[in-house]
């Protein structure tokens, strides 16, 4: 998805960490938010990823930028999770939504918040590798190839994880008729 935006630029042009921050900051934030349901964790992750990008850009070889970036993001996320497991657990906050886009009617907002809260809590119940695959695919918008690079698994595994993740979500969510 983003490689399309960046196009051939990635071939010969190395982005700076500011470019990365401006272009991907929001995606990274949303990735972490959907994986954790927690704005603080999402903020921590953005900072950590930008730090790692800043340190790592000099050794980045032009190629699949998305694969590279999302591998860093994923590793930073998992490191953060590991660190947190050694600390006392804090409860996951509910709601706290900042809606974007055109302003829908209050009813629509309410329905949409309620629905996305349901989806969010269903996502949090997925085993990590399924949640990750689904979020990278449907929230971040990566291709299967990019997800495979980020998660360091074969494309076939990605395909199966995405499907199984969606299937589990379907079973957890009840759909309005």
């Amino acid at each position: 998805m983003f490689s399309q935006l960046w196009g051939s630029m990635t071939e010969e042009f190395k982005p700076t960490w500011e470019d990365v921050a401006q272009r991907y900051g929001r995606k990274i934030y949303n990735f972490a938010y959907r994986l954790t349901g927690n704005p603080d964790d999402a903020a921590d992750l953005v900072q950590e990823v930008l730090l790692r990008v800043r340190r790592g850009l000099s050794s980045y070889e032009p190629g699949s930028f998305d694969g590279w970036l999302w591998r860093i993001t994923r590793n930073a996320f998992l490191d953060g999770v590991r660190k947190k497991q050694r600390r006392p657990e804090s409860a996951l906050p509910e709601g706290d939504h900042i809606m974007l886009g055109a302003s829908p009617s209050p009813d629509e907002v309410l329905a949409s918040v309620r629905l996305s809260d349901d989806v969010q809590s269903a996502l949090l119940k997925l085993p990590y590798e399924f949640r990750e695959a689904v979020v990278l695919c449907d929230v971040v918008g990566l291709t299967y190839d990019e997800i495979a690079q980020a998660a360091d698994v074969p494309v076939g595994t990605v395909r199966s994880r995405i499907h199984r993740g969606r299937k589990m979500l379907r079973e957890m969510l009840t759909w309005p008729v």
């Binding site: 934030y29 949303n30 938010y33 974007l100 886009g101 989806v119 689904v134 449907d138 929230v139």
Partner: peptide, 8 residues
């Protein structure tokens, strides 16, 4: 549904 989740 997943793709229509609001973006923060």
């Amino acid at each position: 549904t997943l793709r229509l989740l609001p973006e923060f």
